[in-house]
Design a protein around this nucleic acid. Sequence first.
DNA 1: GCCAACGTTGGC
DNA 2: GCCAACGTTGGC
Length: 153
Amino acid sequence: MPRYWLMKSEPSTYGIDDLRARPRQTDCWDGVRNYQARNMLRDEIRPGDLAFFYHSSCAEPGIVGIMKITGAGRPDPTAFDPGDHHYDPESSPTAPRWYMVEVHLERKLKRTITLTELKRYPELSGLPLLKRGNRLSVMPVEPKHWKFILSLV
DNA sequence: GCCAACGTTGGC
DNA sequence: GCCAACGTTGGC
Protein backbone atom coordinates (compact mmCIF):
# COMPACT_ATOMS: atom_id res chain seq x y z
CA MET A 1 0.00 0.00 0.00
CA PRO A 2 1.35 3.42 -0.87
CA ARG A 3 1.60 5.91 1.91
CA TYR A 4 0.64 9.54 1.71
CA TRP A 5 2.63 12.64 2.57
CA LEU A 6 2.59 16.40 2.47
CA MET A 7 5.71 18.30 1.53
CA LYS A 8 6.15 22.04 1.96
CA SER A 9 8.13 24.46 -0.11
CA GLU A 10 8.22 28.21 -0.41
CA PRO A 11 7.20 29.11 -3.95
CA SER A 12 9.59 32.08 -3.93
CA THR A 13 12.38 29.51 -3.66
CA TYR A 14 10.91 26.44 -5.32
CA GLY A 15 7.28 26.25 -6.36
CA ILE A 16 5.19 23.75 -8.26
CA ASP A 17 5.94 25.48 -11.55
CA ASP A 18 9.63 24.92 -10.94
CA LEU A 19 9.00 21.19 -10.62
CA ARG A 20 6.77 21.25 -13.68
CA ALA A 21 9.57 22.85 -15.68
CA ARG A 22 12.05 20.08 -14.88
CA PRO A 23 12.80 17.38 -17.45
CA ARG A 24 10.20 14.61 -17.08
CA GLN A 25 8.72 16.82 -14.33
CA THR A 26 11.01 14.97 -11.96
CA ASP A 27 13.37 16.42 -9.38
CA CYS A 28 15.13 15.79 -6.09
CA TRP A 29 13.39 17.05 -2.98
CA ASP A 30 16.53 18.29 -1.27
CA GLY A 31 17.55 20.92 1.24
CA VAL A 32 15.52 19.55 4.14
CA ARG A 33 17.39 20.28 7.39
CA ASN A 34 15.19 18.96 10.15
CA TYR A 35 15.85 15.63 11.83
CA GLN A 36 12.26 14.49 12.05
CA ALA A 37 11.71 15.24 8.38
CA ARG A 38 15.08 13.67 7.57
CA ASN A 39 14.03 10.43 9.23
CA MET A 40 10.94 10.26 7.05
CA LEU A 41 12.91 10.99 3.88
CA ARG A 42 15.51 8.39 4.78
CA ASP A 43 13.44 5.62 6.31
CA GLU A 44 9.76 5.90 5.54
CA ILE A 45 9.00 7.51 2.20
CA ARG A 46 9.16 4.96 -0.59
CA PRO A 47 8.80 4.86 -4.35
CA GLY A 48 5.13 4.65 -5.24
CA ASP A 49 4.04 6.82 -2.32
CA LEU A 50 2.06 9.96 -3.09
CA ALA A 51 2.55 13.46 -1.71
CA PHE A 52 0.78 16.78 -1.75
CA PHE A 53 2.89 19.73 -2.86
CA TYR A 54 2.21 22.52 -0.36
CA HIS A 55 3.12 26.18 -0.84
CA SER A 56 4.16 27.86 2.41
CA SER A 57 5.17 31.38 3.42
CA CYS A 58 3.37 33.01 0.55
CA ALA A 59 0.28 35.01 -0.31
CA GLU A 60 -1.94 31.96 -0.58
CA PRO A 61 -0.60 29.03 1.47
CA GLY A 62 -2.14 25.72 0.46
CA ILE A 63 -1.99 22.50 -1.52
CA VAL A 64 -1.19 23.06 -5.17
CA GLY A 65 -0.39 19.66 -6.62
CA ILE A 66 0.16 15.94 -6.31
CA MET A 67 3.50 14.21 -6.62
CA LYS A 68 4.58 10.60 -6.79
CA ILE A 69 7.76 9.44 -5.10
CA THR A 70 10.03 7.92 -7.74
CA GLY A 71 13.27 7.53 -5.83
CA ALA A 72 13.96 6.29 -2.32
CA GLY A 73 15.88 8.30 0.24
CA ARG A 74 19.54 8.87 -0.48
CA PRO A 75 22.15 11.33 0.80
CA ASP A 76 21.47 14.96 -0.05
CA PRO A 77 24.50 16.21 -2.01
CA THR A 78 23.65 19.87 -1.39
CA ALA A 79 24.94 19.30 2.14
CA PHE A 80 28.40 18.53 0.74
CA ASP A 81 28.70 21.69 -1.38
CA PRO A 82 30.31 24.63 0.44
CA GLY A 83 28.76 26.95 -2.13
CA ASP A 84 25.26 25.73 -1.49
CA HIS A 85 22.86 27.54 0.78
CA HIS A 86 22.12 24.23 2.51
CA TYR A 87 25.77 23.30 3.02
CA ASP A 88 26.45 21.44 6.26
CA PRO A 89 30.12 20.74 7.07
CA GLU A 90 28.99 18.08 9.55
CA SER A 91 27.60 15.98 6.71
CA SER A 92 29.91 13.98 4.44
CA PRO A 93 29.45 11.33 1.74
CA THR A 94 30.83 8.70 4.11
CA ALA A 95 28.63 9.86 6.99
CA PRO A 96 25.69 11.68 5.44
CA ARG A 97 23.45 13.58 7.79
CA TRP A 98 20.75 14.76 5.36
CA TYR A 99 18.63 12.87 2.87
CA MET A 100 16.38 13.55 -0.08
CA VAL A 101 13.91 11.67 -2.26
CA GLU A 102 13.09 11.92 -5.94
CA VAL A 103 9.64 13.21 -6.83
CA HIS A 104 7.59 13.35 -10.00
CA LEU A 105 4.77 15.81 -10.57
CA GLU A 106 1.58 13.84 -11.18
CA ARG A 107 -0.56 16.91 -11.63
CA LYS A 108 -0.96 20.51 -10.69
CA LEU A 109 -4.40 21.17 -9.21
CA LYS A 110 -6.72 23.49 -11.07
CA ARG A 111 -6.96 25.60 -7.96
CA THR A 112 -5.08 25.96 -4.71
CA ILE A 113 -6.74 24.23 -1.79
CA THR A 114 -5.90 26.92 0.69
CA LEU A 115 -4.91 26.47 4.30
CA THR A 116 -7.91 28.59 5.22
CA GLU A 117 -10.20 26.15 3.46
CA LEU A 118 -8.53 23.08 4.99
CA LYS A 119 -9.13 24.53 8.45
CA ARG A 120 -12.85 24.69 7.81
CA TYR A 121 -13.47 20.94 7.77
CA PRO A 122 -13.90 18.95 10.98
CA GLU A 123 -12.96 15.89 8.90
CA LEU A 124 -9.41 17.23 8.77
CA SER A 125 -9.04 18.05 12.45
CA GLY A 126 -6.35 15.40 12.91
CA LEU A 127 -4.23 16.52 9.98
CA PRO A 128 -0.69 17.25 11.28
CA LEU A 129 -0.51 20.30 9.02
CA LEU A 130 -3.26 21.91 11.06
CA LYS A 131 -1.74 21.20 14.44
CA ARG A 132 -0.73 24.26 16.38
CA GLY A 133 2.82 25.39 15.93
CA ASN A 134 3.61 22.71 13.40
CA ARG A 135 6.75 23.47 11.44
CA LEU A 136 7.62 20.16 9.82
CA SER A 137 8.32 20.43 6.12
CA VAL A 138 7.52 16.78 5.49
CA MET A 139 4.64 15.09 7.25
CA PRO A 140 2.42 12.03 6.89
CA VAL A 141 -1.19 12.22 5.71
CA GLU A 142 -3.66 9.55 6.73
CA PRO A 143 -5.51 7.81 3.87
CA LYS A 144 -8.86 9.17 5.07
CA HIS A 145 -7.48 12.71 5.05
CA TRP A 146 -5.88 12.18 1.67
CA LYS A 147 -9.18 11.01 0.19
CA PHE A 148 -11.13 13.81 1.76
CA ILE A 149 -8.77 16.47 0.45
CA LEU A 150 -8.91 14.94 -3.02
CA SER A 151 -12.70 15.20 -2.88
CA LEU A 152 -12.32 18.97 -2.54
CA VAL A 153 -10.43 19.39 -5.80
C1' DG B 1 20.39 17.10 32.29
C1' DC B 2 18.70 21.84 32.68
C1' DC B 3 17.58 25.97 30.61
C1' DA B 4 18.40 30.60 28.62
C1' DA B 5 19.56 32.56 24.35
C1' DC B 6 19.23 32.47 19.80
C1' DG B 7 17.70 31.12 15.07
C1' DT B 8 14.05 29.53 11.99
C1' DT B 9 9.44 28.68 10.34
C1' DG B 10 5.38 30.31 8.66
C1' DG B 11 0.76 32.45 9.17
C1' DC B 12 -1.14 36.79 9.28
C1' DG C 1 7.02 43.46 9.70
C1' DC C 2 5.20 41.08 13.71
C1' DC C 3 5.09 37.37 16.60
C1' DA C 4 4.03 32.61 18.34
C1' DA C 5 5.94 28.25 18.35
C1' DC C 6 9.40 25.29 17.99
C1' DG C 7 14.39 23.46 17.30
C1' DT C 8 19.24 23.97 18.32
C1' DT C 9 23.18 25.41 20.82
C1' DG C 10 26.12 25.79 24.57
C1' DG C 11 27.28 27.11 29.36
C1' DC C 12 26.90 25.23 33.73
